[in-house]
């Protein structure tokens, strides 16, 4: 197709694409290459410390069961959070796209995007205040309920899931909303006129047509959650050790950048593998 383009069009195309690709090269490709290089070194190449190229950092992953165990734990966390985001976010997106109109929709949208406007660390610390024993949640519930409840979710896996779902829910809502809105209402009307029930419409029309948006949202949630480290560390307490926190430790606490970088690339590889395996399945479901 590009062969058919006139030289002037080609120039214009180049002008439009160059800034983005230049930015990608500088902001993503270069640092990532530097990290890839680091991951193959025996020591951080600062100062006079001797170093050589080695695969030891990658082998370290297989020498103990610790890393594999934590990676599996992180993947499970990613699945849990993604599922929760989909279950909460998709119906919300449906209502926003198909039921509510006008000013109310704008106001609700604002509420959805609101978490993005605050710093993620602030969000997590405010959750810590809410979830803590004798915290806002417990005091609030006891003020309303006629019986005493003991809510102390802080430093547990549910606390981590709650914090992460709150942080990443908007992705699922936004991507699903765009896909749902693109569905022509007359399609749904036609199905209804032919006697299709609500569930059938959802299963045969709405879900398949909005699946690309839903999947995009799920991927946007799953990938960062698998590597998350701040939320588990702050909200998880004793159970908050995940693959991401171990990588963070390598960079921050023990200053072993090569191992941290190698662990990161293993994570990247595993995530890519998961996406590669699941994408044909999803494409078939869509067809």
């Amino acid at each position: 197709m590009s062969a058919a383009l006139a030289p002037r069009d080609r120039l214009r195309l180049l002008g439009l694409l160059t800034p983005a690709y230049l930015w990608l090269t500088v902001a993503i490709f270069l640092p990532l290459s530097a990290m890839l290089f680091f991951s193959l070194l025996s020591d951080v190449p600062f100062g006079d410390a001797p170093w050589h190229v080695t695969a030891d950092n990658y082998l370290a992953f297989f020498q103990t069961t610790t890393y594999a165990k934590l990676l599996w734990k992180s993947i499970k966390l990613g699945l849990m959070v993604t599922l929760a985001c989909v279950l909460v976010g998709y119906p919300c997106a449906y209502v926003l796209a198909k039921t509510i109109r006008g000013r109310a929709r704008e106001a609700l949208f604002l509420l959805v995007i609101l978490p993005f406007w605050s710093n993620s660390l602030v969000r997590i610390f405010s959750w810590a205040i809410v979830l803590r024993g004798n915290g806002v949640l417990e005091v609030g519930l006891n003020a309303i309920l006629p019986f005493e409840v003991d809510v102390n979710l802080m430093f547990s896996t549910p606390a981590i899931v709650i914090g992460l779902v709150h942080s990443y829910l908007p992705y699922v809502i936004l991507t699903s909303y765009l896909a749902l809105q693109a569905i022509d209402d007359s399609l749904i009307d036609a199905a209804r006129s032919m006697g299709a029930g609500k569930l059938t419409i959802l299963r045969r029309i709405v879900l398949p047509l909005s699946l690309p948006g839903l999947v995009a949202g799920a991927v946007l949630v799953f990938v960062p959650v698998v590597g998350s480290f701040m939320e588990p560390r702050i909200l998880g307490g004793r159970v908050g050790t995940y693959y991401g926190t171990v990588i963070e430790d390598q960079f921050v606490a023990v200053f072993n950048w090569p191992l941290g970088a190698a662990l990161s690339f293993i994570l990247l590889a595993v995530v890519l593998l998961i996406l590669a395996v699941t994408s044909p399945v999803l494409r078939r479901a869509q067809a």
Binding site: R132, G133, N134, M154, F155, R233, G237, R238
Partner: peptide, 23 residues
Amino acid sequence: LMPQIRTYWGSENDWNQFMAAGD
């Protein structure tokens, strides 16, 4: 010891907060 632990602490500030909150 692990099952006894509520959370790990990282900084002096963490420590003071956890103690003050009665954790």
